[in-house]
């Protein structure tokens, strides 16, 4: 979609069209299923060597979207094209080979590493599956990647419990990187870490992206992290993308009232800066019984009659800047 403006299609690494994921929920065996609309009609494209940020409250469907892109969860509908390959059409076997090119780093470094495998095994396993290397070659590559993420050779034979949270996240990064992927989904990579450790990890991720010409999809609830890392940003609400554009579009020319209130909710980390104190009232509604019309209308301060009945479309305000609102701000 962003390509429609002036960018060439060859820049695009990932093109997602009308992605949908519904989870069926049954009260009991005989009842008709209700559907949780976790991801509902999301389309976007990710340019090569950029960071595509996805931000939203918990329950907005950002993690599900990240997993659907990688086909870790099968989408209910829609397509994902990864560099001319339609992911949805791949057989299981083809997909497994393809997985080398796209990796995921998940939020909790305490649960994402197998507790009974040593670091060498954790990192080297993927190498053995994808490259059929000899044991020495695996050793060599694991050593190299460990130094690259700031760990040492002697860490190779230790278990995950012997490491701190930041070190574990480094292991998870090493495990993803060792396969030389092109695309990495970062699902809340620093949410479980302290700020000083977060700063190290984010800087490292930026450097690795530059050195290995990686493309990231960064999923986070932290707008400051998005601002630091991302080139393009999608703001999600109840399974839908409500605003999409460059980082500056989102932060400086915010169009959707939800995005605007979300940004205002973040307390600035200096006392001299006045906190606007604008409050987004209410809580995110159930994704089973979504509100009619615009999904944000029950909480929207600018709500009009039409918002209750007619769902807005994600329309282009400026080249590359989209908002799903009948009355976008700053226009």
């Amino acid at each position: 979609m962003q390509a429609s403006a002036d960018r060439e299609d060859s820049d695009i690494l990932i093109q997602a069209e009308h992605l949908k994921k519904l989870f069926a929920m049954k009260k009991n065996f005989y009842s008709r299923p209700l559907y949780v609309k976790a991801v509902d009609d999301c389309s976007f494209s990710i340019r090569k060597n950029t960071v595509f940020g996805i931000v939203g409250e918990s329950g907005s469907g950002k993690t599900t979207l990240g997993r659907v892109i990688l086909r870790l969860i099968e989408a209910t509908d829609g397509s994902v094209v990864f560099d001319d390959t339609d992911l949805m059409s791949l057989s299981n076997k083809e997909l497994r080979l393809f997985r080398r090119r796209m990796q995921i780093i998940s939020q909790d470094p305490y649960n994402s590493l197998h507790p009974r495998k040593v670091v060498k095994k954790l990192i080297g396993e993927g190498l053995q599956i994808h490259f059929q290397l000899s044991s020495q070659e695996v050793d060599e590559r694991v050593k190299n990647i460990l130094t690259l993420v700031g760990l040492r050779e002697e860490h190779m034979y230790r278990y995950p419990h012997e490491f701190s949270g930041g070190q574990r996240q480094r292991i998870a990064i090493a495990r993803a990187l060792v396969l030389k992927p092109e695309f990495i989904v970062l699902d809340e990579p620093t949410s479980a870490l302290d700020v000083s450790v977060q700063a190290i990890i984010l800087k490292m991720l930026k450097e690795l992206k530059r050195d290995f010409s990686l493309t990231y999809m960064l999923i986070t609830h932290d707008l400051a992290v998005i601002d630091y890392m991302a080139d393009d940003v999608a703001v999600m609400y109840l399974g839908q993308i409500v605003e999409l554009g460059s980082k500056d579009d989102i932060f400086l020319r915010t169009a959707h009232p939800y995005a605007s209130l979300l940004i205002d909710s973040v307390p600035p980390p200096t006392p001299s800066e006045h906190w606007s104190g604008k409050i987004l009232n209410g809580e995110i509604p159930s994704p089973i019984h979504v509100p009619s019309g615009c999904r944000f209308h029950p909480r929207c301060p600018q709500v009009q009659e039409i918002c209750r009945t007619k769902e807005p479309v994600l329309s282009e305000l400026q080249p590359g800047h989209f908002a799903k609102c009948h009355f976008p701000l700053n226009s």
Partner: peptide, 28 residues
């Protein structure tokens, strides 16, 4: 926040990401 003195406080404040911040994050 305006005049942190302890090296740890200084480091901590420099590690905090902030919307609109353009300089690099510093870590301890």
């Amino acid at each position: 926040f305006k005049n942190p003195l302890h090296p740890y406080t200084k480091g901590l404040l420099r590690a905090v990401p902030k919307i609109g911040r353009t300089d690099e994050l510093q870590s301890i």
